[in-house]
Amino acid sequence: MIARTILIVDDEQRTRQGLKKTLDQWAVGNYEILTAEDGKAAWEIFRSREVHLLITDICMPEMNGLQLLKTLRTNEQKTVVLILSGYPDFEYAQEAIRLGVVNYLLKPTSKKKLIEAVEQALEIKAANERIEYIQKVADPRILQMEENTPLKLPIKKAIQYIHEHLNDSITLKRVADHVHLNAAYFSALFKEQTGLNFSEYLTRKRLELAKSLLLTSSLTVDEISRKSGYQTPKYFIKVFKDYEGVTPSKYRKSAAVKGPSV
């Protein structure tokens, strides 16, 4: 597993080294701690790799901290940011808030306060990733139904069974038998409760699984089609394109994002 990255940007070498030493001891290998001497050097790092947390000073030569943040936002970089500055300037703080900074610490700060701020920022990063992941993977109709619709017990059991057997050959009769209902009655009740007919619900849930695997695994499209319950990759690709507007391969390339942090 590749370690996540925290980048410290400060033109004072002693400060950089002190912050890095503190965070190296805290991270115990779970995060790679990098440093840069100014915004320009930091931007070069951003151009070559993902940075999960940025800790930056404001007043630096070449490119200051706020200029760096503006560059990151312009280029749609989604890192979370802590400001660590020696200047308790209200205008700086206002601009930092406008640019999405999650905390503004004043130098000198204690190791305890620094680590608390870092942990809080990383929790925000994880929450943002989960939200982005859900937005990319979750089917909006199913999400709305699951969040807002009280379901009768047989339908709850049916949905749980579907979720546990998405890669199997599921039929309406098989699920109806599982919840001890007549197939015709179960079909009508399922549509009434969920707003979707059985086959459409099953397709949407299988595509949610497929999208999750496309974004979080290196499995081939053929392997993902089988794990999502499709007998042939050709049919899987057709269904995927009908619902998502692109092929699975194009979806993976255009929507790549890490899964939610654990």
Rank of each mutant, 00 (worst) to 15 (best):
V51W: 11
V51G: 03
H52V: 01
H52A: 08
H52I: 00
H52E: 13
L53P: 05
L53T: 08
I55W: 01
I55R: 10
T56Q: 08
D57G: 09
D57Y: 01
I58G: 08
C59M: 14
M60Q: 02
E62M: 03
E62K: 14
E62T: 07
M63K: 08
G65T: 04
L66W: 02
L66G: 02
Q67W: 00
L68V: 06
L68W: 04
L68P: 01
L68M: 11
L69W: 04
L69S: 03
L69D: 07
L69C: 10
K70A: 10
T71H: 12
R73M: 04
T74F: 11
T74M: 09
N75A: 12
E76V: 01
E76L: 11
Q77T: 02
Q77E: 14
K78G: 10
K78M: 10
T79I: 03
V80Y: 02
V80D: 07
V81G: 00
V81F: 00
V81W: 00
L82H: 06
I83A: 05
I83Y: 01
I83L: 10
I83W: 01
G86E: 04
G86W: 12
Y87F: 12
Y87V: 09
Y87R: 15
D89E: 14
F90S: 11
E91R: 13
E91N: 14
E91M: 12
Y92Q: 09
Y92A: 02
Y92F: 15
Y92S: 08
Y92V: 02
A93H: 05
Q94F: 00
Q94V: 11
E95D: 10
E95V: 11
E95G: 01
A96T: 04
A96K: 02
A96E: 07
I97F: 08
R98K: 15
R98V: 07
R98A: 15
L99P: 03
L99E: 05
L99T: 06
L99F: 12
G100N: 10
G100E: 07
G100L: 08
G100I: 08
V101G: 05
V101R: 02
V101L: 09
V102T: 13
V102E: 15
V102P: 02
N103M: 02
Y104S: 12
L105P: 05
L105G: 06
L105K: 02
L105H: 08
P108C: 05
P108E: 03
